[in-house]
Computed example of a mutant assay.
Amino acid sequence: MARRRQEGNFFFRLDVDFFSDRKIKILKARYGADGITLYIYLLCEIYKAGYYLKIDEDFEFIVSDDLNMDSNKVKQVLNFLLERSLFDNTLFQSDKVLTSAGIQRRYQAMVKARALKTPITVERFWLLPEEETETFIKVHPSLNNSENKSDNSRKNDDNSRKNNTKGKERKGEYIDTAPPGTYFADPSLNEVFLLFLKVRQDSGDHLTEAQIQLLKEDLSSMSDNPDELITIVKKSTMSGWKTFYPLKKGRGKKTEAKNSKNRFNNFQQREYDFEVYEKKLLSKAEEG
């Protein structure tokens, strides 16, 4: 009886500088150990299946149960992983598929030993260009729908850049490469948000509309005050950050620090009405 051909993998490589990666540092800073756990869990599921994982609407609840993690947090971390390109957002939006070019490069290294003897045929969701695809990986262009989607994505990006140059003088230079449209009802907030997008694009980040929507939702969840949101966006823009962080509420600490000046060795001083106190002293002096 012929031995069944192995489709997935039994293990995958985890680089020793995993925690030195800037994206991983931010993931841990925002979501703690839960963020790291979920990312590694997803990598295990992907490599167990091969080089991609197709999910459905129940997936978040399954992961939530497996990891004993709130389903809303699962959704937040997944959105972060897509926004930071740890997974390919285009494929996820079109086909609910989790994979990335980096995952597929590591997949090639993992299957090399056995694929040199028997080449592996990939039919769907292959992201690597021909020059990066090893000879033992056989890609069927007619079946690999990710190629067509990536080509269409490039064309749309090019058209978007051409269209966005119009009206540059009318609304300000920052509109040059920022996606058109109004994202916030408050004009000032919308302006600084568009500036943030423009700075990200100038640094080489080609954001999809889905990624922009996630950024908008993330920002909106931080405050109901437009002025606070404007401050958050400006800080992220000036700092070169790729996402937003809530403002630190330091007013309570400052007030406490001021009050601490009126304390001696952790004992709260009494509050005196000095006019009444002065009258008492005068009356005692007259009696004496």
Rank of each mutant, 00 (worst) to 15 (best):
E7M: 09
E7D: 08
E7F: 07
F11W: 12
F12G: 03
F12Q: 04
R13N: 11
L14R: 14
V16Q: 10
D17S: 14
R22W: 05
K23S: 07
I24K: 05
I24N: 04
I24S: 05
L27S: 02
R30Q: 11
Y31L: 06
G32R: 05
D34E: 13
G35T: 05
L38S: 03
L43I: 06
L43C: 07
C44E: 10
E45R: 15
I46L: 07
G50M: 10
Y51C: 09
I55A: 02
F59N: 04
E60P: 01
V63H: 04
D65I: 01
D66F: 04
L67M: 14
M69Q: 10
D70Q: 12
N79I: 03
L82E: 04
E83Y: 14
S85W: 01
F92N: 02
Q93T: 12
D95C: 12
D95Q: 14
K96Y: 15
I103M: 05
Q104K: 07
R106S: 13
Q108F: 10
A115L: 10
T118D: 13
P119V: 03
T121A: 13
T121M: 11
E123L: 14
E123Q: 13
F125H: 14
L128H: 06
L128M: 06
E131K: 07
E134M: 14
F136T: 02
V139H: 08
H140T: 08
S142K: 15
N144Q: 07
N145D: 11
S146R: 11
K149S: 10
K149N: 09
K149T: 08
S150R: 15
D151G: 01
N156S: 11
D157T: 12
D157C: 02
S160N: 05
N163Y: 05
N164E: 10
T165F: 03
G167Q: 03
R170T: 15
K171N: 10
G172F: 08
G172S: 08
T177D: 04
P180W: 01
T182R: 09
F184A: 00
L189F: 01
L189K: 00
L194K: 15
L195F: 10
F196T: 00
K198M: 10
Q201E: 14
G204Q: 06
G204N: 03
G204I: 05
G204R: 03
D205I: 14
D205S: 13
A210Q: 07
I212A: 01
Q213Y: 01
L215M: 08
S220T: 03
S223W: 00
D224A: 08
N225P: 00
N225D: 15
P226F: 04
T231A: 12
T231N: 03
V233E: 00
S236E: 04
S239V: 02
S239D: 11
S239N: 14
G240V: 06
W241A: 08
K242Q: 09
T243S: 12
P246M: 05
L247A: 13
L247F: 06
L247P: 06
R251C: 03
R251E: 08
T255D: 06
E256W: 09
K258M: 15
S260Q: 09
S260N: 11
S260H: 07
R263F: 12
F264C: 03
N265S: 12
N266W: 03
Q269G: 13
Q269R: 13
Q269H: 10
K280Y: 12
L281I: 15
E286R: 12
E286P: 00
